[in-house]
Design a protein around this nucleic acid. Structure first.
Lengths: 355, 355
DNA sequence: CTGAAAGCGCTTACAG
DNA sequence: CTGAAAGCGCTTACAG
């Protein structure tokens, strides 16, 4: 019997070739399923590979082909169910196309994002899907220049024109406000993780999605003839706890809001908690609407009306666009807006009579 | 000025060396921070690298060193907050040690798991953390034989003795049942995704964690002198919807249970929904306890008492053990059990008087 | 401290 | 259809 590879290390193509009694070129062709190989040679090689437990070293292969069949997914918060759903959408589409996805989490930290992108590029991934955590696109521009296509998910970047997949946040929030105003509310609050107007004017780095939702809120209120639309706007809610504290403030106001809009499902959790702890009843004492159809929103009493994003479809779409770019698509970049869906449940009622 | 690399492709060490006027060996040493390089040479090389925008090709480097500084994390359900938390723990610990983590999701599909492990191995990751989705450990045994250390997270494998990190599920559930029995309950139900006893006897592949929780439930009930502990056991709840349906069945029983234990937070969601839809009040009409401190459990009314697992710490521990193995730790494998914490909230009361 | 050269495990023209 | 050989971008003894 021919000698196997040095024990400890994995068998290589020369090991397989030796055992099958062919050249490494023939073995490589049989193993790779390319080029021309006689049936006899192929069988001998495959058998030898089986016996040796050969596994191709993708690293070596990628060095030659320049492709890794892997895409990098950089999301901002893996504990946000929206991103978990989007990540599944990306993975499903990628896997169908024979690609693996490397999922990474920035935790909304721009430095972490830069470093992650650098590492992914050095591993020569074929493309990148990112939910950017700051308006600074320098590292993404660099990635693109290095030949790595980039698709943006959930968040636009003014300075970086690439395929971007998200929902029409302005319209979705306008719709929420219209419904609330339509139900008779005039004192409508919003709790969000976005920046305040002062912060934006001061040039702090904000995220398009948060800003769009705030803009939708403010313009809809203004259009409804409400004088000071920012009165009940509370920004900077980056966790359920912060959202809870901000909502407590709102509830403590002399003219407290009669309806609260929560800009994502983690904020909604904090809003609901504050409402509960204040002893108010939804919707009789106060109305509320959330963003993102987190699983718990339909189970609480009352079920919360929300704007549902097609998280899975957004992820899938982002992956498909990226895959097309990887395959050489040179069309000008587009903004892909998908529809949201208002799920009317039982958390909205007219304002309480005494207000 | 010296010529740069062929445009389009990334600059390589020879490109940098040429521009700095040194050999590739010297450039490689300066860039890699190893070996001996004069200050002058180092500066010239670093400057040239900067100008060219050189980024090391980690693929090529890994081929030489045999290390990728990457660990693979294979979890079963990314939409389960427990796994999301554990994944963050793994990432935090790995990143601190200079490792990247490749996160993948099997969706509880053993075939997907096998295929994912194969791909990860072919990419020559340095180690693997997996929450196995079936008792079949063949592919993991193979990984280990190929020199890739493996650590198990959340789930034991009888046939595969490696470091395993989880909680004492039997004890945790026994504790829940004891509390319920202590409050006066005799008709205690459990809804779980685990296999039934029949399925286990028929040799179907089950997961240790589910089985342990069922065992804890059954033995605690038997110890409390309850005759037919399986009466209110409902298995096969793999989604909130299925859990909801099973709970509806339980509630429809002539002698319906007075307390329900949900074996994880997604099951708890379905259980709560069914209870709500049946018009029962927690805890006055029925008591309930969940597993895993999902964020919504403290926000619903009443807040649900749960067994909290230290998800983040479990992930971190798994990563640290794996990193130690990668660094050559040869100790015999151990089972690391971390403590759970019963969070007593407001979902448990004595059984309703009429029952 | 520096450089020429071999080699990691593959793929791929190029001849035959 | 098959094989000898070059090469992907690095690292690393080995001389000097």
């Amino acid at each position: 019997m021919s000698r196997g590879p040095a024990s400890g290390s994995s068998p290589t193509i020369p090991d397989v070739a030796r055992r099958a009694g062919v050249s490494t070129a023939t073995a490589a062709r049989a193993l790779g399923g390319y080029g021309a190989v006689s049936a006899a040679a192929r069988e001998a090689v495959l058998a030898a590979a089986e016996e040796l437990g050969y596994r191709r070293n993708e690293l070596a292969r990628s060095m030659i082909t320049g492709r890794t069949n892997t895409i990098g997914l950089v999301i901002a918060d893996i504990e946000n169910p929206f991103f978990a759903g989007a990540a599944r959408g990306v993975s499903d589409a990628a896997r169908e196309a024979g690609y693996e996805v490397v999922l990474t989490n920035t935790d909304e930290d721009p430095d972490a994002e830069r470093s992650i992108v650098r590492v992914l590029l050095s591993k020569r991934i074929d493309g990148l899907i990112v939910a950017p955590t700051s308006p600074d696109a320098e590292h993404l521009v660099a990635a693109r220049q290095a030949g790595c296509p980039v698709v943006l998910l959930d968040r636009r970047l003014e300075d970086f024109a690439v395929d971007t997949v998200l929902v029409d946040n302005v319209a979705a929030v306008r719709d929420v406000v219209d419904r609330l105003v339509g139900a008779g509310h005039r004192r409508v609050a919003m709790v969000t993780g976005a920046l305040s107007y002062e912060e934006r004017r001061a040039g702090l780095p904000g995220i398009s999605t948060g800003q769009d939702r705030v803009d939708g809120f403010l313009t809809a209120l203004a259009d409804a003839g409400i004088a000071e639309p920012t009165t009940y706007l509370r920004t900077g809610a980056h966790s359920p706890e912060q959202a809870c504290a901000l909502t407590e403030e709102l509830i403590a106001l002399p003219d407290r809001p009669t309806a609260v809009f929560a800009s994502n499902s983690r904020v909604a959790l904090g809003v609901l908690k504050a409402i509960r702890e204040a002893g108010l009843e939804v919707p009789r004492g106060i109305s509320m609407v959330g963003f993102d159809d987190a699983d718990w929103t339909s189970v609480v009493t009352p079920p919360i009306s929300v704007v549902a994003q097609p998280a899975h479809a957004l992820g899938r779409q982002a992956a498909e666009l990226l895959l097309a770019r990887i395959s050489g698509d040179e069309e000008p970049p587009r903004l892909h807006m998908m529809a949201t869906n208002f799920l009317s449940r039982a958390s909205v009622a007219p304002p309480p009579p005494e207000s």
